[in-house]
């Protein structure tokens, strides 16, 4: 029975290792000129993905990026209620993606010779960061902090796989907003 308990324990440990890789400080940082919001949005311009018609994981990723693009536009125009709604819809798409593909990659291979920026964790973190800023603007500090804490967990996961300058900037901003570093 003792052996059995150890077996289950090791299985759980391995499971844990598989889902939360340690962050590697020795890997080079992907510059902002390569991985940035404009580049991500540009890769998914065109035919819109409707929630009801999203079938593949990659449809959900494209849908999430497209909703984020719309949210960013509303955020810039300071149309905050619309931006909040769109960030939420974008997150719904990305959360489906993370059920199946958990890790970010700056060189996700679509097919021979074609790679894309596949950053669902980073994009979720950015959405939560901005949603938190909107809430903070409205004086809802505790809700804002909840969003930023959530953002921090996603950016941590993103950076554990891809050390992007973009992600590091988001992380720095989140720590400063939360006063944690």
């Amino acid at each position: 029975m003792k052996a059995a308990a150890w077996f289950v324990f090791f299985l759980l440990v391995f499971q844990g290792c598989a889902t939360a890789p340690p962050r590697r400080a020795d890997t080079p940082v992907v510059p902002l000129s390569k991985a940035n919001l404009e580049a991500v949005l540009e890769e998914h311009e065109g035919l819109e993905v409707i929630w009801q018609d999203a079938q593949e994981v990659r449809d959900f990723y494209r849908g999430g990026v497209q909703k984020k693009g719309q949210a960013e536009e509303k955020f810039r125009e300071k149309s905050f209620p619309e931006a909040m709604k769109l960030y939420h819809q974008s997150n719904e798409f990305f959360l489906v993606v993370l059920d199946y593909i958990k890790h970010d990659s700056c060189e996700y291979v679509l097919f021979e010779g074609t790679k894309i920026l596949f950053l669902p964790n980073l994009l979720l973190a950015d959405n939560y960061l901005k949603a938190g800023r909107i809430l903070s603007e409205r004086g809802r500090e505790s809700s804002a902090r909840r969003k930023w804490k959530r953002a921090l967990s996603y950016i941590d996961h993103s950076l554990s796989r891809e050390r992007t300058e973009w992600g590091l900037e988001i992380e720095k901003e989140l720590h400063s907003l939360l006063g944690t570093r």
């Binding site: 289950v8 299985l11 759980l12 598989a18 059920d99 199946y100």
Partner: peptide
């Protein structure tokens, strides 16, 4: 238990 854990892991890594 092991089988169930492996099945969950597999389910999580196979895209829909």
């Amino acid at each position: 238990v092991g089988l169930i854990l492996v099945a969950f892991q597999w389910g999580a890594s196979v895209p829909a």
